[in-house]
Write a protein that binds this DNA or RNA. Structure first.
Lengths: 339, 339
DNA sequence: GCGCATAACGACACCGGTGTCAAAGCTGTT
DNA sequence: AACAGCTTTGACACCGGTGTCGTTATGCGC
């Protein structure tokens, strides 16, 4: 008779059901070699007792565990959190759990820290968010350690099996199309930091789109920042202080775009009447700033879900998709230029 | 001879060191009953082999695991992420890992979902963030299930052992002091939603401070929202549309304060020249909005660290502290009222 | 009814640690 | 030298599952 004060174990279930623990194990693991009758009986006992297999014991016996790690270097809190929610969509009601590990990409020990983390926790696999997903040494480390991994990114960083990406580049083109359609011809960019693949993709998309429309990109129409608010202010000030200032600015992320709003306001330049601004990422600040910002949104939750499936259940159809479409979100920061 | 292709186990260490596995176990667990000589020898072998104890095996044998959970209902991404980083400060280089679990407080199944999560994962303990930390049923559930827990909050929700709080109430007083020192007397509040303990605390702090300064709070100077941006707009509009509108607004969080900015701008009211606004939480939007917002910052990372220690190592001095001081962050959204 | 292949199940070792308790080593006392 | 009492160590069972392989039902052809 199982002790009611303790959580029931597989032995309790086996005893009550009058079968061996191995049979119970088979029921848990959906083994096909069971008689339907037995399965039903055992399932009844499991339900009756409220039995749940102990993931630690399974992990030990099976030599693999049910922890999936999230490695990130917080570029944007909302993105990280949405990603977490997306992963959870995938692992809900499974025995998998999501272990988070913020890291510091500026630290020289980052790789060692991660190695140590992987050694201690022996994760089933890790999901890696940009910008550290762009670090090939990190991917190599995962392979070396026999740890599954999926990288999130905005470019082809790895083979499909290890990658979930969005088509940033094409979407930047739709941004420029939108601006041109509104009558803009002098369009400037605030690029992201060197070394970020996403920054590179967005800048290349910009260049390609401008070329497509037969528009010049004078050197003074190229600003750059580090993805932070303040750097957006500085970059926008430079752009606006030129002889022939742009009528529209595309910033490589929303934070910098918000900085551009600030710079404009400080000069008494109205957005969007006198200056159009478009951001990227659709972070909360884009919706909250005044006027609400036109930006590009990418399906982070869906991407997270797909990445999680790639790791834990590669046969799941949701794991097949590797490239997800970003889309333009039109709000109120773009208007026709006044001449 | 240990197989180099596999991770070494405690048996490998024992064999190489010429001791029993129990002795190795004692070294790992810092048992005091070991001869120094033996300890040194075993430690040498551990280092040589690069041995790491398997947390799953330990968890199984010890009947407790090394996973600490984070239950939250995303009120503010930055807060949640900072909290995660703070917890990590505490558990870095331990065998503990942080498992996140976003939940949906509006779902009728929230408690069942959490119960199921706890049953499956058998966490060492959970950390609960506001606003769901204010849910007493949830705390009861944890106790029932024998799962350790610590609640974060802005009020005395539980006994010290299970609580880390900030002194919101007093800090709201310092906000009002600041406004009064700047010459304001008609100060309005945008309260948070009913049922949120933090909202209640902040409102009570407001009332107490106003009383202290001998100021009236006419009913039309009390607005309320649901902590979201849009509700701040609506509430501020109502406050500004009264016969004798306030010269300053205290919003119970930054999102709603940003909404007040919006409402003011829409009416051509300059912040801070014609209207002062103060928020609460020091979320990123406070620093990014124009003008940068004066607000209240609370030491989330330190609180997280303390909460984690309370769970995993209650004897640690850092676990002792239960109340942390919030502080006023003066930026540019407060000025003297113009008459 | 018999032999045989196959389906269904169980006994037992094992995963990598920890807890219990007894044994071995050491010291000092008589 | 024998013994008590303490320190240090090891043998062995156990945590709660899974893998292997042998054993026992079951169905089928003749």
């Amino acid at each position: 008779m199982p002790d009611a004060s303790q959580k029931p174990t597989i032995n309790d279930v086996a005893r009550v059901a009058g079968v061996s623990k191995k049979t119970v194990s088979r029921v848990i693991n959906r083994s096909p070699l069971l008689k339907q009758e037995t399965r039903t009986k055992v399932e009844g006992v499991i339900a009756e007792l409220g039995y749940r297999p102990n993931p630690q014991a399974r992990a030990l016996a099976m030599g693999r565990n049910f922890l999936i790690g999230l490695l990130h270097d917080n570029p944007n809190a909302q993105t990280v959190l949405n990603f977490q929610v997306g992963v959870l969509d995938a692992i809900r009601d499974t025995e998998f759990a999501l272990v988070v590990r913020p890291v510091d990409r500026r630290s020289p020990h980052m790789l060692d820290d991660i190695r140590s983390f992987l050694e201690i926790q022996r994760l089933f696999g890790v999901l890696i968010l940009p910008p550290i997903s762009e670090n090939d040494d990190l991917a190599r480390l995962c392979r070396e350690m026999g740890c599954g991994y999926v990288r999130m990114g905005s470019a082809r960083l790895d083979d499909d099996e290890h990658l979930v990406q969005s088509n940033d580049r094409e979407c930047v083109e739709s941004v420029i199309d939108h601006l041109v359609a509104n009558g803009h011809r002098r369009i400037a960019i605030i690029k992201g930091p060197d070394g970020f693949r996403s920054a590179q993709e967005r800048a290349e998309g910009f260049a390609a789109a401008m070329k497509k429309h037969g528009l010049e990109i004078p050197p003074e129409a190229i600003g750059s920042g580090n993805y932070r608010f303040d750097s957006g202010i500085v970059a926008a000030e430079k752009l606006l202080d030129t002889d022939n200032p742009p009528t529209a600015i595309f910033a490589s992320n929303d934070e910098m775009a918000a900085g551009a709003f600030h710079a404009a306001l400080a000069r008494g330049i109205d957005v969007p009447a006198q200056l159009s601004v478009v951001g990227f990422d659709d972070s909360p600040i884009a919706a909250h700033i005044l006027p609400p910002m036109t930006t590009v949104s990418w399906p982070i939750r869906e991407m997270a879900k797909s990445a999680a499936f790639k790791l834990i259940e590669p046969t799941n159809p949701a794991a097949g998709l590797s490239t997800f479409p970003a889309r333009l979100v039109v709000r109120n920061s773009v208007a026709a230029p006044r001449e």
